[in-house]
């Protein structure tokens, strides 16, 4: 009797834990456990064919003092993120504004712009490698149409990274769609009120659209930033980090250490640096957002 009463109390909780148990197990086995191991590995030398050997913080010392690719990979990754992410935001936002007008065949237009963002991976990387072929590629043909003699793109230390940035713009459709949804959530009344105040279109854009959409901008910024800092496939397939390390992304460096040179300990240390970098960058963006992101709730407070 007593037991069954207790059971009746516990039962709903047990059911909840039971249903959540796949995730709990997965979290312990594939996230929390490996995170702890990763901390340990980052303090060892671990060539995989022999057991890890404790080296303390030596991996981090090597990273900051000896690894001649480390700073370069940080620089390349940062440069890519700093240019590509804002470019994505601006392009995606402008496209969303354009495609939120009263225009004919709106669905078709939106589909066209969204389409490239659904494909990804090796096939896309190969396509763009061919597009950027310096002698026979589409990019230089298009530039030739407007009288520009195109660079050698992926073969040039100067132009390889810009080529990858241009390529990334092809998939701007994803953030565009998020912006469109955000734009459609802006109350019509705000525009009408602004129009009655005599604001012109440009003012309405800056004083109504942009503030109202700023939370969406923040979201796209964070997601874009995290993705950019983890860039791998394009660089691996299209340039293998070259020419002259100009596209040697951080993740490529990590992959090479782990799987090409079997420096598992060092690669784990690199992974924690990447994590710290992503964390700091994200927190920085979030902190700064209190200045420029406008939340609807604030309206009532004024």
């Amino acid at each position: 009797m007593h037991r069954s009463k207790l059971w009746r109390q516990i039962r709903p909780h047990a059911a909840g834990w039971l249903c959540a148990s796949p995730w709990i197990l997965g979290f312990l086995i594939f996230t929390l456990g490996p995170m702890l191991w990763s901390i340990y590995y980052s303090l060892t030398e671990y060539p995989l064919i022999r057991p890890p050997v404790w080296v303390g913080l030596d991996n981090f010392r090597v990273m900051f003092q000896e690894d001649k690719f480390f700073y370069n990979s940080l620089r390349v990754t940062t440069l890519y993120a700093i240019v590509a992410v804002p470019l994505h935001l601006v392009t995606g936002f402008l496209m969303a504004v354009m495609l939120n007008q009263k225009i004919r065949y709106i669905a078709l237009w939106r589909t066209i712009y969204f389409l490239p963002s659904v494909v990804s991976g090796v096939a896309v990387a190969l396509l763009w490698q061919w597009i950027f072929n310096s002698d026979f590629g589409l990019a230089n043909w298009l530039l030739g149409l407007v009288g520009i003699d195109g660079p050698s793109w992926l073969l040039s230390p100067t132009w390889a990274l810009p080529a990858l940035i241009i390529m990334s713009l092809w998939s701007v459709g994803g953030s565009m769609v998020i912006f469109i949804a955000g734009l459609q959530g802006v109350p019509q009344a705000l525009y009408e009120a602004a129009e009655m105040d005599g604001s012109n279109a440009v003012r309405r854009f800056w004083h109504v659209t942009v503030p109202m959409i700023s939370p969406v901008i923040l979201f796209n910024l964070i997601i874009g930033l995290i993705a950019a800092l983890q860039t791998f496939t394009q660089a691996f397939i299209m340039t293998a980090g070259g020419p002259k390390q100009s596209t040697h992304f951080f993740m490529l460096h990590l992959y090479n250490n782990a799987f090409q040179w079997l420096k598992m300990g060092y690669a784990s240390a690199l992974a924690w640096i990447l994590f710290a970098y992503i964390l700091v960058a994200t927190l920085f963006v979030i902190r700064s957002s209190s200045v420029w992101v406008f939340y609807e709730g604030e309206i009532k407070g004024r």
Binding site: P47, L48, I49, F259, Q260, L262
Partner: peptide, 11 residues
């Protein structure tokens, strides 16, 4: 090839 041989043997 060389990466694959190496990681698979180590694995």
């Amino acid at each position: 090839y060389w990466t694959k041989v190496q990681t698979s043997i180590a694995g």
